[in-house]
Nucleic acid binder design. Structure first.
Lengths: 283, 283
DNA sequence: AATAATTTAGAAAATATATTCTTTTAGATA
DNA sequence: TATCTAAAAGAATATATTTTCTAAATTATT
C-alpha cells in the first residue's frame, strides 16, 4: 500500500470511508456506520464509551483507525472533533450574510431558499385551519379510490401523494394524462371516490376543468392552490390556499408539500390506529 | 453555603457563571471568560490544552470547576459537551420530543411535520458544502442535455427538476421508465450530457444501476441521497447526503427538494449572469 | 475437511490526563 | 512594614484512556 495523503477534513474522511466501506470486515463496517451516523458523539466520547455504544471492542476502534491509515483512535477522532468545532455559522450570522452580500453562488441561493421555505412553513402553521384539514382527511378516509391530478409545477405534489397513498395500501389513481387521455381518466371517478387537485398560477386549465367536472358530478374535491381567487376555489369542496415563497421568480414548494404530507399522514395515522391489528408494522 | 442543585444544562451554567463572575478571583475570571467565549473548544480539549489556550495552570481549571460545586474539571466539561451534542441533534431525538404528548389530529401532524421540515432545512444549511454545490451546478451548466432519474419517494424531486429545467429552456430528459424501458432511455445519455439521480432508503436498484452504468461510461453524475453509505455514493461524481426527517415513518422531502431547487436556480442565475458578462451593454 | 489467512476479543502495558498537595506569590489589613 | 489570608503555580500522584499484544475464533482457500 503506497502512501496516500490522509484526509484531514471530515468531508474527505466521509468520502474515503464510503469508498472503502464494502471492503471492510464486518466489525469495521459496524464501526463505520456507527461513526457516520453519530459523528458528534464519536467526536466527544472516549474510546470505551464509543466501543460500548457501537457494541464493539475498544481495540476494534483502533483497528478501524489504522485501516484508514491513522496512527490510532485519537488521530481519527480528531477529524470528527474538527468538524464539531468548524460547524457552520450560527443562524443569526447566516441571516446577516444572506441580507448583506448579494452574491449568487449556489450556496447563497440555497441559504436564501431555505430561509424562504422556513418562513413559509411557519406561515402555513399559523394560517392553516385545523377544521378544514380534518374535513379533508375525513373525505379521503371515506373514499373508495383517491384520484390525484396536478400538472407542471404542482405535479411533484401529485406524485408524492400518489406514491404515499399507494405505499400505505390505499387505493389511489394518478391522473397523468398518458396519451392525452386526462378527461377519460377523470371520467372513471365515481361517486364513492374523491379527487385531490393542485394547481398554482399560472393555473393549468386542464386541472380546473377536471375539478369542475368532478365537482358537478357530486364527487368530493380537495384542492391545494395559492390564492382565494384561484379557479379551483369555486370547483372544490375544501380548498387550501398556500402562499409559496419565491427566489428569483422560482417558486418554492415546501409549504404545499408539507400540507400534502400532513393530509397523507393524517390519513395514515387514522388508518393505522383503526387497522392496527391488520398492519402492525406498516409505514 | 447550603447545597444548591448543580446546573446540568449549558444555559443554566452560563447563568450561574455570569452571576458569580464578579466575585471570582482574577485567574478564575480569566477561565470563565475563556470558557464562555469558546464553549466548543472547552468541550473538546483536554485540561492541558485548555490550560494552554486560556493561559492558566491546569490546576486552576480544577479550582474553577470546584468553585461552582463540581467534583473536578471533567464534571464541568461534561456540561459543555452536552451542549455540543444537542447543537447537532439527531432528528430522531428532536422528533420524539415533538411527538410526545401530542394528539394526532391532522393539524397536530401538520405542526409536527412543519417543525421537522424546518429543522431539516436548517440542518441542510449547516451541512451542505458550498464547493460541492458549485461543482454540481458547473457540471449541469456544461452539459448538453440533463437527464434525471428517480423513482418512488424520490420521484417528485425528479419531476420538479425536469419541470424547472424545461421551463427555463434547458434541454432536459426525464427517465420515466415508460414501458419498462429505463435502461434504453439511459443508454441515450452521451458524453456531453450529464445525469442527476436521487434515491433514498430503501434504495431502488434501478436507480443505482443506471447511475453505475452512466458513471462507468464517463458521464458526470450528480446524486442526491440520504447517507454516505448509500449505493449512489460510489457511482456518482458529486454526491449530496441529505438527512430527511420523518414523522410516523413518513419521511419528509423538504431538504432534498430545497437542494434540488438550489441547483436549478443556481443554474438559472448562472446562465443569466454569464450572458450578461458576454453582452454587457446589449439589450 | 483441513489448512492458512484474517479478524476479533480481551487482558496487559504504555501513555496521557486529571487531580491533589505543597510551596510560592500576591494582596489585604493593621 | 509585618502579618495574615487567599490565590496561584508546579511538581507529584492517582486515575483514566489508549494502544499493543497474544490467544481464540471466524472466514476463506485448497
Amino acid at each position: 500500500m503506497t502512501e496516500k495523503p490522509l484526509p484531514t477534513t471530515y468531508d474527505d474522511l466521509v468520502d474515503i470511508i464510503s469508498a472503502k466501506y464494502e471492503n471492510l470486515s464486518k466489525r469495521l463496517k459496524q464501526i463505520a456506520s456507527y461513526a457516520l451516523d453519530n459523528p458528534s458523539e464519536f467526536a466527544i466520547d472516549t474510546i470505551a464509551e464509543t466501543a460500548d455504544k457501537a457494541a464493539v471492542q475498544p481495540s476494534a476502534l483502533v483497528r478501524f483507525a489504522k485501516a484508514f491509515g491513522y496512527d490510532g483512535f485519537s488521530d481519527i477522532q480528531k477529524i470528527f472533533q474538527k468538524r464539531l468545532l468548524e460547524k457552520a455559522p450560527s443562524y443569526a450570522t447566516r441571516l446577516k450574510a444572506i441580507r448583506s452580500g448579494t452574491r449568487n453562488t449556489p450556496y447563497d441561493l440555497l441559504n436564501q431558499f431555505a430561509e424562504a421555505n422556513i418562513r413559509q412553513l411557519q406561515y402555513l402553521q399559523q394560517e392553516i385551519q385545523p377544521e378544514k384539514l380534518a374535513q379533508a382527511v375525513r373525505l379521503m378516509d371515506r373514499a373508495d379510490t383517491i384520484y390525484i391530478f396536478a400538472m407542471r409545477r404542482a405535479f411533484p405534489l401529485a406524485a408524492y401523494i400518489y406514491y404515499s397513498l399507494s405505499s400505505m395500501g390505499r387505493r389511489a389513481q394518478l391522473i397523468d394524462n398518458t396519451g392525452g387521455l386526462y378527461m377519460q381518466q377523470a371520467q372513471q371517478i365515481s361517486k364513492n371516490d374523491m379527487l385531490i387537485v393542485a394547481s398554482f398560477a399560472e393555473y393549468t386549465p386542464y386541472v380546473s376543468q377536471v375539478s369542475a367536472d368532478a365537482h358537478n358530478r357530486g364527487i368530493s374535491v380537495v384542492a391545494i392552490t395559492d390564492h382565494p381567487l384561484s379557479p379551483l376555489t369555486p370547483v372544490s369542496n375544501i380548498c387550501f390556499h398556500v402562499k409559496e415563497a419565491s427566489v428569483y421568480d422560482f417558486r418554492a414548494l415546501s409549504a404545499s408539500m408539507c400540507l400534502a404530507q400532513s393530509l397523507v399522514i393524517g390519513l395514515g395515522v387514522k388508518g393505522y390506529i383503526s387497522k392496527e391489528d391488520i398492519y402492525p408494522d406498516n409505514g
